[in-house]
Amino acid sequence: MAELALADELFHMAHDEYSGKVRISGDMLGCGLAAAALGELLLAGTLTVTDGKLAGWTAGQTGDPVNDQVVVQLQRVGAGHALHHWIAHLRADIVELVAYRMTARGLIRRETSRTFTGRTQTRYPAADAMAATRPAVRLGFLLGRPTDFDPHSTLLAALATAVGLDIVAPSLSAAQVRDRLTQLQRALPPGHRDLAKSLDTAVAAVALQSHA
């Protein structure tokens, strides 16, 4: 069972636990964390999704910087919009918000440095490297025992896959891992499946923009 919020686990998976360097592009990370932030409310039962659209919510502000920002945006924009538009809307600021939450909880450190071109580079090494690997290790273990997957872990696996993060299962070949992940995504509850598909759409749109 997960110990951390969905976006925090995805953040750990997307960063090297020692150097703090991101393993995927910043655009992919933003999309994935935006979907994960929405996923936290879905898992809590305070967000309603119908046919790929955000249909309504009962979530309120709780003092959590990530969830509260989503709630503020929900109140500002309103329901009825496609989830992939929500992911695109939230992704610009979500990385900083998740990093802030995780730093405040003592999960990561924020380190900045200058590159030789004068740009500022930010890294997020884990405070506990072993703890930071637990989400990926848990998913790899569960892929060998798919009947033990819980909703949180299933959604995490779908979101991680959508942004290009590899999940390694020691007992399975790469082809078997792909098959298991496909089966798990098909078994997602409708709202969770809509979120995973919407992340695929958002990721594809970002990829097209980067090649335009």
Results as ranks from 00 to 15, higher is better:
2 A>W: 05
3 E>W: 14
5 A>S: 11
10 L>P: 01
13 M>H: 06
15 H>E: 07
16 D>F: 11
16 D>M: 09
22 V>I: 13
23 R>H: 13
25 S>F: 05
27 D>V: 10
28 M>Q: 12
30 G>Q: 10
37 A>M: 01
38 L>E: 01
39 G>C: 07
39 G>P: 10
42 L>S: 04
44 A>I: 04
46 T>G: 03
50 T>N: 13
50 T>K: 15
52 G>N: 08
58 T>Y: 06
60 G>H: 09
62 T>L: 12
71 V>H: 08
73 Q>F: 08
75 Q>E: 13
82 A>C: 06
82 A>K: 14
82 A>E: 10
84 H>C: 11
84 H>V: 08
87 I>H: 07
89 H>S: 05
90 L>I: 01
94 I>P: 05
95 V>N: 03
96 E>I: 08
97 L>H: 10
99 A>T: 05
101 R>E: 09
103 T>H: 12
104 A>L: 09
106 G>M: 06
108 I>W: 03
114 R>E: 12
117 T>W: 00
117 T>Q: 13
122 T>G: 00
124 Y>S: 04
124 Y>A: 04
125 P>D: 00
127 A>Y: 05
129 A>T: 14
131 A>Q: 13
133 T>N: 09
135 P>D: 09
149 F>L: 12
150 D>R: 10
151 P>A: 05
151 P>M: 07
151 P>V: 05
157 A>H: 06
157 A>L: 11
157 A>R: 03
160 A>N: 04
163 V>A: 01
171 S>M: 12
171 S>P: 03
171 S>V: 14
172 L>P: 09
172 L>S: 06
173 S>F: 02
176 Q>K: 10
182 T>I: 02
182 T>N: 08
189 P>I: 02
193 R>I: 00
196 A>G: 04
198 S>D: 06
199 L>T: 03
200 D>E: 13
202 A>C: 13
207 A>P: 00
211 H>L: 14
